[in-house]
Design a protein around this nucleic acid. Structure first.
Length: 591
RNA sequence: GGGGUCGUAGUUAAGCUGGUUAUAACGCCGGCCUGUCACGCCGGAGGCCGUGGGUUCGAGUCCCAUCGGCCCCGCCA
């Protein structure tokens, strides 16, 4: 039986057989998905990455194979030879792509026996992730998981083709590189040859791709792993893949249009979906103002509206106090409030309360006014103005919250998403892209008590804002842009600083000392002085893109061998302790 | 670092207010079956109730700790 492979070659994928192959003699290899033994006749569903086909062991055709087929169990690896035939009338299985045909086996070889798998490969059972990840190689046999990786492969291939056709050059950059301050925590790699020294795994190839621009490569791309030692989420893994891009002699609009072209081709060729170009653009300020977030889900409206001015002189003390202290009152409108029960509304108030917002209230609109705990404190004129401002009509619901601008954006931004899910306002088949532009260059960090880069320290400011760098750093705008898809940031980039003087000013504004800058970025500042073209770029999170394109619930589903939330690998058991010898070789001691 | 949630047979789950021998489905093993496709029928095996401690006459169930999966906040240039 072990001769089978050396004598015979596979002729078809199991899942590829169709009526057009009828009467052909075929050789198939695959896994026994299921056996149905009728005593006199045995059916086996043979599975490979392309799908399932029914193979039939009939003692009238081959008694030896029929006898051998008794031994077949789930996930045995089989080779069969036989003739494809149209199934007898009435025996077709329309749920299988191969359901019109079956293979009458004339020879069977069991290539590999298999232990009973630890879980069913059927789609219908929910499996816990710990067992799936421990036996990931079996989990990956399931067609619904393979589907994700097959899509991922197509997207990557399509992206490569797109960039190659557009004159981009793929260049690899180092994984063993230099630790950088700013940004995420680095993964460190100790150096054996240079004792006490460490490499860092790149958080992104940022500086290398800029150096490639300085080197004159002009248009670069790379599909590359990046590493960030931060806590995990449903859409975050410590190692993840970026489609990384950089271009010289370009404007923001040039980059945006090249990337819109990429998205259009990828969605067309991988999902058969036509995207309408160009994507809408929204300033950072407008995004926060209308949606409370810089990654707005624009698949539904329900925008946040500001009512502060209406209540500036209100007699309702609680609200006026918030406004007098520089706070705001904002609201969102829910159409058709009957879909929310009294319990739901209490839930909304409780939810807002978790943010410690000073004011939270709701109002059902009816002909006599509002059903609301705050109705009696308001003047008729105020109620009317609110109704007008919110476009509220009978049967609608208004949800209010008042506190600081930052809190209210957060509260209503999140509430907007929760309500949309609850009310089923989100069309799961829609892809809503939006560019977010005009980010602030810096954000004040409460933990570090200084300004930090919103994007990264190599982002070019809008030149006319340069004078603000000293006086009011928080107001300096960046030439940066994010691409948001269905409320998820899938890419971000910027025009970079190409003048050493400007770069030094930025480091100053970030409160980085000359010596530290020299130590960390000296090589890069030097490079900037040797003829740097104006340049800029972007990076896309490939994992997140695939997750959204495929409708996967977790980023882990689109990664072949992902980490758990504690950043461990249940399959390999990494990370593990290492021997004392390994540590000594690296001059390391565990504290 | 913090909050929440889950952990019972190979798998997915049930197990009420603490009370006799811990249930079910699927899977697994044996037998029968020549047109099934989640095949069917008959029979059978299978448990450290995550782990450790406590309360109690008695703990899967209550309490504490701990380990692990997942979700969230912080964090993620």
């Amino acid at each position: 039986m072990s001769d089978f492979i050396s004598i015979k070659k596979r002729s078809h994928y199991c899942g590829a057989l169709r009526a057009s192959e009828v009467d052909q003699n075929v050789v198939l290899m695959g896994w026994a998905h299921r056996r149905r033994d009728h005593g006199g006749i045995v059916f086996v569903d043979l599975r490979d990455r392309e799908g399932l086909v029914q193979v039939v062991f009939n003692p009238d055709i081959c008694p030896e194979a029929h006898l051998e087929a008794q031994k077949i169990r789930s996930e045995f690896v089989l080779a069969v030879e036989g003739k494809v035939r149209r199934r007898p009338a009435g025996m077709e299985n329309p749920t299988l792509k191969t359901g019109e045909v079956e293979v009458m086996v004339s020879e069977l070889a069991i290539l590999s026996e298999a232990k009973t798998p630890p879980f069913s490969l059927d789609a219908d059972t929910d499996l816990s992730e710990n067992i799936r990840l421990k036996y990931r190689y079996i989990d990956l046999r399931r067609p619904e998981i393979q589907k994700y990786l097959l899509l991922r492969n197509r997207v990557a291939a399509e992206a490569r083709r797109y960039f190659q056709d557009a004159g981009f050059i793929e260049v690899e950059t180092p994984f063993l590189t230099k630790s950088t301050p700013e940004g995420a925590r680095d993964y460190l790699v100790p150096s054996r040859i240079n004792k006490g020294m460490f490499y860092a795994l790149p958080q992104s190839p940022q500086l290398f791709k800029q150096l490639l621009m300085i080197s004159g490569f002009d248009r670069y791309y790379q599909i590359v792993k990046c590493f960030r030692d931060e806590d995990l989420r449903a859409d975050r893994q410590p190692e993840f893949t970026q489609i990384d891009v950089e271009m010289s002699f370009i404007s923001v609009d040039d980059i945006i249009s090249v990337m819109e072209g990429l998205m259009a081709e990828v969605f067309k060729n991988c999902l058969g979906r036509d995207l309408s170009l160009p994507f809408p653009r929204l300033s950072y300020f407008d995004a926060l103002d209308h949606y409370g977030k810089d990654n707005p889900d624009t698949r539904f409206s329900m925008e946040i509206r500001d009512l502060t001015d209406i209540f500036r002189d209100t007699g309702f003390e609680v609200i006026r106090e918030v406004i007098d202290n520089g706070g705001v009152l904002k609201a969102i409108l829910v159409k058709d409030n009957k879909r929310l029960s009294r319990k739901d509304l209490d839930g909304i108030r409780d939810y807002i309360a978790t943010y410690d917002a000073k004011v939270s209230a709701w109002a059902r609109i009816n002909p006599e006014g509002w059903t609301s705990t705050i109705f009696k404190y308001l003047k008729a004129e105020e109620v009317q103005k609110v109704n007008d401002a919110m476009d509220a009509h009978e049967g609608d619901l208004i949800v209010f919250a008042a506190d600081t601008l930052k809190t209210i954006r957060e509260v209503l931004g999140n509430l907007r998403l929760q309500l949309a899910k609850k009310l089923d306002l989100i069309d799961p088949n829609q892809f809503a892209f939006a560019w977010i532009t005009e980010f602030p260059l810096f954000e004040y960090s409460d933990t570090e008590k200084r300004y930090v880069s919103t994007h990264h320290p190599f982002t070019s400011p809008v030149m006319e804002d340069l004078p603000l760098l000293r006086s009011d750093p928080g107001r300096v705008r960046a030439r940066a842009y994010d691409l948001v898809l269905n409320g998820s940031e899938i890419g971000g980039g910027s025009i970079r600083i190409h003048q050493q003087k400007v770069q030094s000013l930025i480091f100053q504004a970030l409160g980085l000392g000359d010596e530290e800058v020299r130590l960390k970025f000296g090589y890069f500042l030097d490079a900037l002085e040797y003829g740097t073209p104006p340049h800029g770029g972007i990076a896309f999170g490939l994992d997140r893109m695939i997750m959204i394109m495929s409708g996967a619930e977790s980023i882990r589903d689109v990664i072949a061998f992902p980490k758990t939330q504690k950043a461990t690998c249940l399959l390999t058991d990494a990370p593990t302790k290492v021997s004392i010898e390994q540590l000594m070789e690296l001059s390391l001691k565990i504290a």
